[in-house]
Each structure stands twice: as structure tokens, then as C-alpha cells.
Simulated scan of single mutants.
Amino acid sequence: MTKISALIVDDEQPARERLTRLINPIQAIDLIGEADSADAALAMIAKHQPQLIFLDISMPSMSGIQLAETLRQQANTAKIIFTTAFDEYALDAFDVSASDYLLKPIRRERLLEAIKKVLPEPKEDAFIVIKDAKTTRKIALNDIIFLHADQKYTEVYLSHTSYLTSDSLKEFEQNFSGYFLRIHRSTLVNRNFLKGFEQHKSGMFVTLNDTDKTPEVSRRHQAEVRKFFSR
């Protein structure tokens, strides 16, 4: 998936630094810069045309709400996620078509939820092409149950068979994040096939539709899996 370019606008440096630390590991976001005022933001927006703006509300000279209204009058199509320490601005924020409204201190889980709202939906007809010495195969992403890294290759598991591709897990995650959820450094699973998870003494494992395989969930990713099933 193509990355979304993003700009942080906040008059407080510690707030900008914290949000930058939260955003940097998110592969779908290309953070192009920061602005410490609405005037500086307008100049950067005109120059770089970010697709997403993380916008503080309470700022001197021009508030985030006023800046959002200015952008709307300019027919700017950037998505806006407001960031603020105050909850009384929520109605005003959505009056200017905000995509989401995050209260400080911003939690990583809540930030990811907000970003998912602005990511483009994956195309239903998306597919990959796998080639070997004799055969070229076109495989729909909707048919892939999970992916597992195997040394230099990635195993692509379908309901009744599997194939090897030289495409890395990182490439799958970057290009098709709307399809796949990382559960281990070596495993991505198709969100649409996730059926449940099991907790054993040896660890956590996911159960999947259309296969009896139960890939392991690393300790690092267990919270994300639990959250997926708590929606």
C-alpha cells in the first residue's frame, strides 16, 4: 500500500516529539515534518500537500479548529485527526469534518484506530503473481490465509496448498496492510480468515478458517490479537 504523507501541527515541542515517536514505527505513514503554529502549518501544507494532518486544537494566534476551517475553505482534501488535552472541542472538531479526535496523552492503540480510519480500503481484486521455473500463478489476496517467512522465501498458504515467493513479509505488510495482521516476526495472517485464538502453556496460537494450521502469536503481538477479537 502506498504510504500516506502526514504532518504534525502542535505548538508544544514535547507533544510533537511524543507523537513522532508513536508514528515513526507505523509503516503506512510517511511523516514529512512538524509545524509549531498554524501559520507555519499553512506554509508547509502549501508546499508539501500532506494527505493527513495531526492537528492540535489549542494554539496561539489561530486554533486548530480555525486552521481546519481555513483548509476546508481552500478545498484542501487532507484528512485531519485532532489531538488535544481537552474534550470539550469534540463537537466543533467534527463540524469541520475531522476524521478522529484524540485526547492527550495519546495511546498507541487509539492512534492506530484513528489511522485505520483514513487508510484507503484495499481493492477487492488485488492479487499477487508467483513465478517458479515453469509456472506463473496469479493469486487473489482474498484467497491467502496466512504468510510465513521461510529463510529467503515467504510461504503463501491457501486452503488446500501453499506456494513460495521471494516477496518478503515486510513487502506484504507495507503493500497490503488492510489485508494482513502481523502476529509474529515471521507470520502475517489474513484478517478475514481469523477465527479465534487459544492460550496454552506453550503460548498463544490463532485458529483460522479453511485450515487446521494454528500459527503461533509472539508475546510482542498478543495484545494486538486480543484487541482484534474484542471489537
Rank of each mutant, 00 (worst) to 15 (best):
M1K: 14
I4R: 00
I8D: 00
D11N: 11
Q13P: 02
P14F: 15
P14G: 08
A15G: 03
E17P: 14
R18Q: 10
T20R: 08
T20S: 11
L22I: 11
N24K: 14
N24L: 13
Q27M: 09
Q27W: 07
A28D: 13
I32D: 00
G33P: 02
E34R: 10
A35H: 02
D36S: 10
S37C: 04
S37F: 05
A38S: 04
D39T: 06
L42M: 09
A43G: 07
K47S: 12
P50A: 06
Q51R: 13
L52S: 01
L52R: 02
S58T: 08
M59L: 01
P60W: 09
S61N: 09
S61F: 04
T70C: 03
L71H: 11
Q73F: 13
Q74T: 04
A75P: 03
A78I: 08
K79N: 07
I81E: 00
T83A: 07
T84V: 00
A85V: 08
A85M: 05
E88P: 05
D92F: 13
D95C: 03
D95R: 07
V96Q: 04
V96H: 03
S97M: 08
S99V: 04
S99E: 13
Y101E: 04
L103P: 04
K104N: 05
K104P: 09
R107T: 15
R110C: 15
L112M: 09
I115W: 03
K116H: 10
K117Y: 02
K117A: 01
L119Q: 02
P120Y: 04
P120L: 10
E121N: 06
K123M: 03
E124A: 03
A126D: 06
A126T: 01
F127V: 01
K131R: 13
K131T: 10
D132E: 05
K134M: 14
T135H: 12
T136G: 08
R137C: 02
R137E: 03
R137V: 02
K138F: 06
I139Y: 04
N142F: 00
I144K: 00
L147Y: 08
L147T: 07
D150V: 04
K152A: 15
K152Q: 12
Y153R: 02
V156P: 07
L158R: 03
S159D: 14
S162K: 14
S162Q: 13
S168T: 15
E171H: 12
E173G: 10
E173P: 09
E173R: 02
G178Y: 03
Y179D: 00
Y179P: 11
F180Q: 05
F180L: 07
L181R: 02
L181V: 08
R182T: 04
I183K: 01
I183N: 12
H184A: 06
R185V: 13
S186W: 12
S186I: 06
T187K: 01
T187V: 13
L188P: 04
V189E: 05
N190Y: 11
N190K: 11
N192W: 10
N192I: 09
F193L: 12
F193Q: 13
F197Y: 14
H200P: 09
H200I: 08
S202D: 15
M204L: 11
F205M: 14
V206T: 07
D212W: 13
P215D: 02
P215E: 03
S218C: 10
R219V: 07
R220G: 01
R220L: 10
H221M: 06
Q222W: 11
E224W: 08
V225W: 05
V225K: 00
V225Y: 06
K227C: 15
F228P: 07
F229S: 10
F229K: 15
S230H: 15
R231S: 15
R231G: 14
